[in-house]
Structures are given as structure tokens and as C-alpha cells.
Design a protein around this nucleic acid. Structure first.
Length: 503
RNA sequence: CGCGGGGUGGAGCAGUCCGGUAGCUCGCGAGGCUCAUAACCUCGAGGUCGCAGGUUCGAAUCCUGCCCCCGCAACCA
């Protein structure tokens, strides 16, 4: 038994949540549920990153204050995640002045005290139309894409975090260790990406903005003219949720032997791999253990974008399946390997729903239960083992422990397929007495294992399967994974359609 | 020469590390079954494994060169 602290990136609520947000939460939730099932103690935190110019600007455009905007949008996220059955323990909001701010301010002070924050001038290309600095991406032939005019060179004062000094240390941290601390990335190929960045030379990172250009955020302690920029504010959510540096501090979910895993998208891997550990190191907090980095979702084969008009709204998907989150959860887990980009396609999710969930799984459960029902719902001895288990629990556990979730789910579905073959081969409907009961009991037992294996992925479906089978939903898998481990299991419950046909 | 990922039957993917008859799912065609949600099972058609060289008895798999697609390139999950 070990302790696990799992976090996702915090979402930026300047608009309604989209499928990318969902992908990450479902992934993290599946991992969290798996850890709990295997017997770990788990704390699972998600949240929202609510400051910054973009929120400030969106609010202005909608005639709201930034606070009104986030207070309106954040519940959309919380509500969606509830409906997706995301089993988070804590939702942290960076606008929360009681929970989040004190930790951030203390962290800033610690970094300052360590001599890591220095005020200096920053010069960049500023577009007066956009009222912000431009990046290369915002420019086309040297002109702002939105305003078609050349930005001007503007100099402003920023606090900078001294990241450039830690190139070697960070490289060691990611490959070997930094003063005994290790930090690993899954998948490993991301490591090469980050290391090559380090090799290109790290620059110091801007940690603040003048209040005149960014007001919506946390003020720099002791300097009324500056507002903290995203790094010190947002990344810190992982420890502010634990009350770090306050009288509510709970380090038992951070310090060893607890294992800390950040689950994030590939776009922010560099910040989590470089800035965050450096910040922690220089404020005397231990560095996390693992970064689990997922890919992005395209929609119908193309990058999601408002101009193409292929942005998928999670609510529409939930609605398609009458509010049941499991078809979507199943799709994301089954079709998209954790470390790679994936595609969301309406056509495909419908096919997966019909063939895998409804036909293979739902129909199997139903035909087995109906046959048992006709025999009075009684179960017999299931023997010591069965060929129905395919690769068995070991392969499943290995897959999940290595975050190969699609693989683990595939193993459960293999058993389903095997059962369908078996029932056709044995034709229990043509058998009598003990022989009939034996075949059906074996199938029921296999279905029990399938339901358990599906628990991290599609918890509601698993629970319904277990109830129909006449079993309780277990908290952990301890003592449940042996063939025939339910000694007192003599009778099944009522058969019920697991997945209705779509209209 | 910025960095990374990928190119395998109509579609989506596995196999590539540790060379040895090319596999899975969906779709398609034929047959079977009738317990079940018009579901299930079996068989079949369909691929010169991006291109070109090389190593080898043998290459999707190793080496070299090239082409194409996608993402990232400091604040878009």
C-alpha cells in the first residue's frame, strides 16, 4: 500500500470546457481509480487557473469583471467533471484568496530570499491594438495578424526567475538525480525533447508584469506596481491545495513516501519539467516523482479550431448517450494511447458504442444472465481456473501500472470476445442440468472479472454489471482477482439492458 | 540541416528495441446459430509494410540517403 498524489493541469476558464479538458480528466481519473483499486491511498486534485490578461480581456469584452467571468465559467467545469464521474478529491481555484494566495505569496518570498528573483527590463514587440506583447506566432510578415500593423518595441520592467543557472541541474534531475531527487517523464521520448531544449540554453523566465498591463492576478509581495505572472501563480496550485506554508499545511500528501504524479498535456511539459522543479528546489520543497504527459485531440482528423468549426463540446457527446459518461470514457481510453495524439470522430464513437459496448459486452451480459435466470438464477461451482481469462490479471495490472491504459482495457475486452466464442461453442441453451449450470457459472465468473477490470475505465457500467451479477461493488481488488474467489456467490440479480440502442 | 511524433489491406491501429510464413478492430462478401440488445459465431476477399540503396540465407523489423503528413518552437489542454 502506498500513497499517491495525482494532479491534472488546472484549466483556463476563459470559455466553456472542450474535449481536450475531458481527455486529461478522464485519463487522470482512470489512473486515480486504478490506484485506489490496487489498494493505494489516493488524493486527486484538479482545478482552474483563473488569472491573466486573457481572462481580463474576455471579461471586458463580455461586460463583466474578471471575477464575475470566472465565477460564471468555473461551475461549468465542475459540473461537467461531476457528470463525467471524475473522482477528484479537491478542486482548487487560483482566484481563491484564502486557499491559494497565501501559499503563492510565501513561495514568492522564499524564491526572493534565495536570490532567485531579479527585477530587470524586458524588451519585446508590443501591439497597441491587442494591448499585449506579440510572439512569433502572432506575427505574419512582421505584422500583427489581428490588426495588420507592425508592433512597436516596448520595454517594461519584470521580475525574472533565474532559471538559466539550473540547466545542468535540471538535466541531471531528469536523467539521473539532482542532489538525490529524481523526476521522470512518461513517455520517455518527451525527455529527449526537454533535454534538447536545455542544451539550446535556458533563459530566465519572466515572473511578473507591471500592474498597468496585468491587473487580474496576485500582487507581488512588497511591490505594489507588479502582478505575478502565470508561473508562480498557476504551478503553485499543486501545493497550495495542500496548504503549504500556512497553518493548514499537510505535507503527508507531498513528502515521501507519497508519490506525486502530475498529469499534463504535451504543450506544458517544458514548464512542468523545468520551471516547476527549479522553483520547488529553491524554496526547499521536494520535487515530484513523475510527469505523465498525454497528447492532443484532433476532431474528425483535423486540429480543433473555431474557424474550421469542428470543436466538439463535451455536453453534446454526453447528450448523445443520454447523459451516460461511459461511452465517451470508453472511447477515450480504448482508442487513444496515453502518450499519443488521438482523434475524436462522431462516426467512430457511435461504432465503438454499438460494436464494443452494446453488442460485445452488453449483449453478452444479457444473454448469460437471461439463461441463468431461466434456471432460477442459481450458480454452481466455477472450478479452479478457466481459459476464458486470456492473458489474465498479471498482464492487465502491468499495463495499468505502466499507464498503458488502452492496452489494459483491450485485455478486458479480449475476455469479452472469448466469452462470446465460448457461449456459441458450448450452446448452453441446448444443455440440461449440472452441465448447463457449470457452463453458465463459468461465464458469470468471467463476467465478474470483466466488470472488475472495467472499474477504472467505466465505473458506472461496471457497477451496473456487478449489481446484475448479484455482487457488491468492491473498494479494492484485494482477494477478488482469483478465479472463483467469491465463495458465497450463489445467485445472480435481475438482468437489465446495459446499453440501449441509439436512435 | 531547430526539436519531436508518424507513414503497415477501404478506415483506425499493433508488430519495429531482441530480423525468420503480415496481425487486430471497424467496414465489405458468404455461411452458421437462435440463449441474447436484428445481437453472437465461423470462413473469405483485400496489403510489393512511404521511396531508393545496403547488410543478411532471410528485412515491416538493422544501416544509409531521400520524400510526405502532423505537432511543438516559451505562456492555445
Amino acid at each position: 500500500m502506498s500513497r499517491q498524489y495525482i494532479t491534472t493541469a488546472i484549466d483556463y476558464p476563459n470559455a466553456a470546457p472542450h474535449m481536450g479538458h475531458v481527455l486529461e480528466k478522464v485519463l487522470a481519473d482512470t489512473v486515480a481509480r486504478w490506484f485506489r483499486l490496487r489498494g493505494d491511498e489516493v488524493r486527486f486534485q484538479i482545478g482552474t487557473d483563473e488569472h491573466g490578461v486573457k481572462i481580463q480581456r474576455t471579461a471586458e469584452a463580455e461586460g463583466l469583471t474578471p471575477k464575475e467571468l470566472v465565477d460564471r465559467n468555473v461551475p461549468l467545469y465542475q459540473d461537467l467533471y461531476k457528470r463525467l464521474n471524475i473522482s477528484y478529491d479537491k478542486f482548487i481555484r487560483t482566484s481563491d484568496q484564502k486557499e491559494h494566495w497565501p501559499t503563492v505569496i510565501e513561495l514568492w518570498k522564499k524564491l526572493d530570499k534565495a536570490g532567485k528573483l531579479n527585477k530587470r527590463n524586458y524588451t519585446g514587440l508590443y501591439c497597441s491594438g491587442c494591448e499585449r506583447f506579440m510572439t512569433k506566432k502572432d506575427l505574419e510578415e512582421g505584422k500583427c495578424v489581428n490588426h495588420k500593423k507592425e508592433p512597436e518595441e516596448v520595454t517594461e520592467e519584470n521580475y525574472f526567475f533565474d532559471l538559466s543557472a539550473d540547466g545542468e541541474n535540471l538535466k541531471n534531475l531528469l536523467t539521473k538525480d539532482w542532489d538525490g531527487e529524481e523526476y521522470r517523464m512518461v513517455p520517455q521520448f518527451r525527455e529527449n525533447e526537454i533535454l534538447s531544449l536545455v542544451d539550446q540554453g535556458l533563459e530566465d523566465v519572466s515572473f511578473s508584469r507591471p500592474k498597468s498591463s496585468l491587473e487580474w492576478g496576485i500582487g507581488v509581495p512588497g511591490d505594489d506596481d507588479h502582478t505575478m505572472y502565470v508561473w508562480c501563480d498557476a504551478l503553485t496550485n499543486y501545493i497550495s491545495g495542500l496548504g503549504f506554508f500556512t497553518d493548514k499545511e499537510d505535507r503527508s500528501w507531498w513528502d515521501k513516501p507519497t508519490k506525486v504524479t502530475h498529469i499534463i498535456g504535451k504543450d506544458i511539459a517544458r514548464f512542468h519539467a523545468l520551471i516547476w522543479p527549479a522553483m520547488l528546489r529553491h524554496s526547499g520543497v521536494r520535487i515530484p516523482d513523475k510527469l505523465l504527459i498525454h497528447g492532443f485531440l484532433t476532431s474528425e482528423g483535423e486540429k480543433m479550431s473555431k474557424s474550421i468549426g469542428n470543436v466538439v463540446i463535451p455536453d453534446e457527446v454526453l447528450e448523445k448517450f443520454k447523459g451516460n459518461p461511459d461511452p465517451l470514457r470508453f472511447y477515450l481510453s480504448h482508442e487513444i494511447p496515453v502518450d499519443r495524439d488521438g482523434d475524436f470522430s462522431w462516426d467512430r464513437i457511435v461504432k465503438i458504442y454499438d460494436s464494443k459496448l452494446r453488442n460485445d459486452l452488453g449483449n453478452l451480459l444479457n444473454r448469460v444472465l437471461v439463461l441463468i435466470d431461466k434456471e432460477g438464477g442459481k450458480l454452481g461451482d466455477v472450478g479452479k481456473s478457466s481459459d476464458l481469462m486470456c492473458d489474465g490479471w498479471k498482464a492487465y495490472e502491468d499495463s495499468l501500472n505502466n499507464f498503458q491504459l488502452d492496452n489494459g482495457l483491450g485485455l478486458a475486452m479480449n475476455i469479452t470476445s472469448k466469452c462470446n466464442q465460448y457461449i456459441d461453442e458450448k450452446k448452453p441453451w441446448g444443455l440440461e442440468g449440472d452441465e448447463k449450470v457449470a457452463v453458465l457459472s463459468e461465464l458469470a465468473e468471467a463476467l465478474r472479472h470483466i466488470a472488475l477490470m472495467l472499474l477504472p475505465f467505466v465505473p458506472k457500467t461496471s457497477e451496473r454489471m456487478l449489481v446484475q451479477l448479484g455482487l457488491k461493488v468492491p473498494q479494492t481488488l484485494e482477494g477478488k482477482t482469483e478465479w472463483g474467489s467469491e465463495k458465497d456467490w450463489k445467485k445472480v440479480g435481475e438482468p437489465e439492458i446495459l446499453f440501449e440502442p441509439l436512435e
